[in-house]
Amino acid sequence: MKLKLALAAVAFALAPAVASAMCSGMKHETTASGCTAGQVWDADSATCVEPVTG
């Protein structure tokens, strides 16, 4: 019983580190909601750009 409790405690203690490590290799993509104020999303280049007025 003590062994199971100790293993469960170790698993819960290491869970956040394992979850964080799994996400670190993922590529995070910018979307329209990630553009700064005054910029717009350009779908062709998949980046935030200054709007062209003219």
Rank of each mutant, 00 (worst) to 15 (best):
M1G: 10
K2I: 02
L3A: 11
L3H: 01
K4I: 15
K4F: 14
L5I: 14
L5G: 07
A6M: 15
L7I: 04
L7R: 10
A8C: 10
A8T: 10
V10F: 02
V10M: 12
V10W: 08
A11T: 11
F12S: 00
F12W: 10
F12P: 00
F12C: 14
A13L: 15
A13R: 00
A13M: 04
A13S: 12
A13G: 08
L14M: 11
L14R: 04
A15Q: 09
A15R: 02
A15Y: 12
P16D: 10
P16W: 05
A17Q: 11
A17F: 15
V18I: 14
A19F: 12
S20A: 15
S20L: 12
A21Q: 12
A21V: 07
A21C: 05
M22V: 14
M22Y: 14
M22F: 15
C23M: 06
S24A: 10
S24C: 04
G25P: 00
G25E: 07
G25L: 03
M26Q: 14
M26F: 14
H28E: 14
H28A: 11
E29K: 07
T30W: 00
T30F: 07
T30L: 08
T30P: 01
T31S: 11
A32W: 03
S33L: 13
S33Q: 10
S33P: 03
G34Y: 01
G34P: 00
G34L: 06
C35T: 04
C35E: 00
T36P: 02
T36D: 15
T36F: 12
A37W: 08
A37I: 09
A37E: 13
G38C: 08
Q39C: 02
V40D: 06
V40P: 05
W41C: 00
W41S: 00
D42M: 05
A43I: 01
A43Q: 09
A43S: 13
D44K: 06
D44M: 04
S45Y: 04
S45T: 15
S45D: 03
A46H: 11
A46N: 09
A46G: 02
A46R: 07
A46S: 13
T47H: 03
T47F: 05
T47C: 03
C48F: 00
C48N: 02
V49K: 04
V49H: 02
V49T: 09
V49C: 05
E50P: 03
E50I: 09
E50T: 14
E50F: 07
E50G: 05
P51M: 04
P51R: 04
V52F: 08
V52S: 10
T53V: 03
G54K: 12
G54D: 15
G54Y: 05
